[in-house]
Simulated assay, not measured.
Amino acid sequence: MRVLRMPVFLMTLATLAVHEATERLSISRDTTVMGLLSQFDGTATTVFVALATLRTSVKSESLEENARMWRRSVRFQFAAAFALVAFIVSTAAAHYTGLGSWAVALNLTTTAAVLWALVGPIEPA
Rank of each mutant, 00 (worst) to 15 (best):
E64P: 00
F9V: 10
R75Y: 01
A50S: 14
L16F: 13
L10K: 04
V3Y: 12
F76S: 03
A80I: 13
L13D: 04
Q39D: 14
T12E: 05
T110W: 13
M69K: 09
V49S: 13
V3I: 11
F87M: 09
F82S: 11
T46A: 15
E123M: 02
L54T: 11
A14V: 07
A117W: 07
G98M: 10
S57A: 15
V8M: 05
M1Q: 03
L4M: 08
V85P: 02
M6V: 11
A117N: 07
R72V: 04
V47H: 00
M11W: 10
R72D: 06
S26H: 10
A125V: 07
A79F: 00
F76N: 08
H95D: 07
D30T: 06
D30E: 06
W102M: 05
E123Y: 00
L106M: 13
T31P: 04
A125W: 13
E123P: 00
L118R: 05
L115G: 05
H19E: 06
V47E: 05
T53F: 09
K59V: 03
T46Q: 02
L51W: 06
R55K: 12
T12C: 09
W116M: 06
R75E: 01
A83I: 01
V85L: 15
W70G: 00
S62V: 05
T22A: 15
S90K: 04
W70A: 08
R68G: 00
I88E: 03
S26Q: 10
A117D: 11
N107C: 04
L36F: 06
S101E: 02
Q39S: 11
N107M: 02
L115K: 06
L51V: 11
L36Y: 15
E20C: 05
V89H: 08
A83P: 01
P7K: 08
T22S: 12
A92I: 08
T45K: 09
V104D: 00
K59H: 15
H95Y: 08
G120T: 02
L99N: 07
G42F: 02
V89W: 03
